[in-house]
Design a protein around this nucleic acid. Structure first.
Lengths: 185, 185
DNA sequence: CTCCTTTAGTATCGACTCGATACTTTCGAT
DNA sequence: ATCGAAAGTATCGAGTCGATACTAAAGGAG
């Protein structure tokens, strides 16, 4: 009964998910921005990076960011190193709201599947996404540690290094999403 | 490197897809409505059914439908049996525009995967969607033939029957999506 | 050091989605 | 004949989104 082509399944899943993402007084895009900021490293918590992540335009992101700030979920601070940039950070309220993330339902449903189905889904989905991004030439937004510029323990004492930005990285840094990330060969 | 939880993968895939769905002068929702109408059977090509499918409200769907009509992609005809209802139908232009459906990229990317990954993805995704819908208590919108009210060949001569609506069904009907569909036990 | 270009963000417009509410028309059941 | 439910439409406000125009700061090149 299930269509062989998963495009229809993904289309349907996407729609169900988008409907759920109107909870908690936020819009789907606002949830996505909030999630991103919670997972992005310090080089990547700017409106520019968010623009690249969401794949829209500066103007739209500017509005979304203003809405989140108005709701008290994030703060905007002009970057000391470059005063054109704005550092975005989650407030305590923002972090606590994320615990009601409607996407948790998705993880819960996934958790209901048996072990083999879970494994299969994760693997095949990763391949599909990779293929989509390859076509689109979009940035992968992977975690720091898997980047080709990541130099493990290059600073000693368990401190790593980014060979692109020439910055020291903590263990915590290396687990976060980075705009500049390029998968290691 | 890939997160074990596929929620992030699906979130990302969804976003990439939504960005692509702004092509051809249509909005993502308009594409979805067009796709639905192309695949829905005659009991299901109404604003009500479309509302249930999209999971939004009557008002929103009314606007989307008006936009598609304005663009010459669908026609609206008051139903003869019940004059409250409106029958929606794709025009030739609508059908031809669907050949440029941005979701084709998704099918193409899927086609790039090897046979096993394709199989795994379809199966696991179907399970996940089923689980999501079970939680949401949303209608599955499956094809007519897989419904518990479907009576194969009940009219003879390869004509089938819907035991819910008491209507004869052609072979073509039975392959289409139905609002009333409930999976056979 | 001054021009000039690039980069980061904001401001604003128009089209659209979306939830919510109020309304009209039609059907059906009592 | 009446009343209530169902199918759509109309309209409002908030938000997304692309597009364009704008400001301010940084980084050269001379």
């Amino acid at each position: 009964m299930t269509p062989h082509d998963p495009a229809q399944l993904i289309e349907r899943l996407t729609r169900v998910l988008q409907n759920e993402a109107h909870a908690g007084g936020l819009k789907p895009t606002q949830w996505e921005a909030l999630r991103y900021l919670a997972r992005a490293n310090r080089f990547s918590r700017t409106p520019s990076a968010l623009t690249a992540y969401l794949g829209t335009t500066k103007g739209t992101v500017s509005q979304t960011v203003m809405a989140l700030e108005r709701k008290g979920l994030i703060t905007k601070v002009s970057a000391p190193s470059d005063r054109r940039q704005v550092d975005l950070a989650l407030t305590a309220a923002g972090r606590s709201l994320l615990e009601e993330d409607p996407y948790e339902h998705l993880s819960q449903s996934w958790a209901q599947l048996d072990g083999q189905a879970q494994e299969q889904l994760s693997e095949s989905l990763a391949l599909l996404l990779q293929e989509m991004l390859r076509r689109r030439k979009g940035r992968p937004f992977g975690v720091c540690r898997s980047c080709k510029f990541f130099r493990a323990n290059a600073e000693g004492n368990g401190r790593h290094r980014c060979a692109l930005l020439n910055q020291a990285l903590t263990e915590a840094d290396s687990a976060l999403i980075c705009v500049e990330q390029e998968p290691a060969g």
